[in-house]
Design a protein around this nucleic acid. Structure first.
Lengths: 248, 248
DNA sequence: TCGAATTTGTGCGTATGTATC
DNA sequence: GGATACATACGCACAAATTCG
């Protein structure tokens, strides 16, 4: 029975202390020097132990200060048929999720006309270069950036209608907006994957470098025809994604 | 404009080579010695560069041999209303997903009576210690382990019926099995989160140490009453999760 | 079969820069 | 300004696994 390497033992000890609540969110871990004394190891080993926990996303180093336990409270993102249709109410699904967690959900957005690249064109079922309305969102929960999203709608569908600019009408949410122009959205497909955060996402979401995001490709369709598609990025490990699917 | 540290530059170069296909799955990365010569850096820097890519799950080190690009072909797991009801067919959803990817899906299972712990009891809406049927699955795609799952069904519901032992009847899948005893499943809820793989998962799924998994808590309900709940683990970054939700 | 070379894994010691307190 | 702490980096050493002649 081989003993695990020292740096993994130390990482396991610290992880256990964090998960047990002994080191709560925001708490400072022992310094490298402290770990060196406590475990009688070199700085290299202390550093690798911390690197393991950083890789797991549960601690964050701040140069000159220390290594701190990251906030581990998980936000919940709901996707369910009833919610989607009920969006004719005054609040967005995001704001509702935040409110459920006792937090205030706000967002910034920026819309502009654009041309569909190949990837978006394929998802919208239009030709490459087709005109689309592109809207970039940044969602904040209690002021802290927590979700990015870029949505695309074919202008062939919305141009000249009251919902051409997504955030300017009274209706909130894709389903409700499309309802107002007589397009009845009847299905949403989400494809969830996991990948390393891009530099832009690290910046926009205040993530530690080299962290993960849930990447969601979402497409709304009406009678089989795509009417909106979006790329959504959520900090990995900070979000639970809940899908409620009716059967028959 | 500060230049990025050397180890991140090297990691970025290698990552670009992998993503561009210049280094395909299975290809061997330059050895540490090679990187030292090529970039004129110390072994420490070469090692940290590789560690970054390992942390991203895109390469895997083998002692004595080298560092290799991991298989990045993504499997797709579908969860959608039509599929779920159609399970009365002879194949399971898992086998169908595998077939869609041109692979052969098989599985091992082991069922036993058990008592619900607090977590499972809460999810099933029964008292702690209530008798349940516990079934552990290991799914393989072309012989390679690719998914773990442990399901729990309240014996109060199934005891003495033909579907008491999940894998012994003719019907495949929770919805179809419950149909045969007159329980009409009408909803499934999945909660997707991301976490570090446990040692058992690393072992059972042949994962590199310190990798991530998608963790799914799935619960089927009939008229609001839970009839099955399962913990599912999928290798992070190897799976896309597709959810198809009808709206109204 | 054996042994040498290579490669990664683990670990030690040290040094410099820079951010924080 | 001084002490502390992390980030980056160099050089070295040995073990274990693999590869290959």
């Amino acid at each position: 029975m081989p003993t695990p390497p020292a740096y993994l033992t130390i990482a396991a000890d610290l992880r256990a202390a964090i998960l047990s609540g002994e080191l709560p969110a925001g708490a400072k871990l022992p310094s490298e020097s402290g770990l060196m004394r406590q475990y009688e190891v070199s700085r290299t080993v202390a550093k690798w132990a911390i690197a393991v926990l950083k890789g797991e996303g549960i601690v964050e180093g701040r140069a000159g200060s220390g290594v701190y336990v990251r906030n581990t409270t998980r936000l919940v993102r709901h996707a369910q048929a009833r919610d989607l249709r009920a969006e004719q109410g005054p609040t967005s699904p995001f704001a509702r999720d935040a409110a459920r967690a006792g937090q205030q959900g706000t967002w910034e957005h920026e819309s502009r006309r654009d041309q569909a690249d190949e990837r978006i064109a394929a998802r919208l079922g239009v030709g490459p270069g087709a005109p689309v309305m592109r809207t970039a969102y940044r969602f904040l929960s209690d002021g802290e950036p927590i979700q990015l999203s870029t949505s695309y709608e074919p202008l062939a569908l919305t141009e000249g209608t009251p919902v051409e600019w997504p955030e300017e009408g009274a209706a909130v949410g894709v389903v409700a907006r499309m309802d107002t122009i007589g397009v009845r959205v009847d299905e949403v497909v989400e494809r969830v994957s996991l990948r390393a955060a891009t530099a832009e996402e690290v910046d926009a979401l205040s993530l530690p470098t080299r962290s993960f995001v849930h990447s969601i490709e979402r497409t709304y369709t009406a009678a089989g025809k795509p009417v909106e598609t979006a790329d959504i990025a959520l900090p990995g490990g900070r979000y639970d994604l809940v899908y409620r699917i009716p059967i028959d």
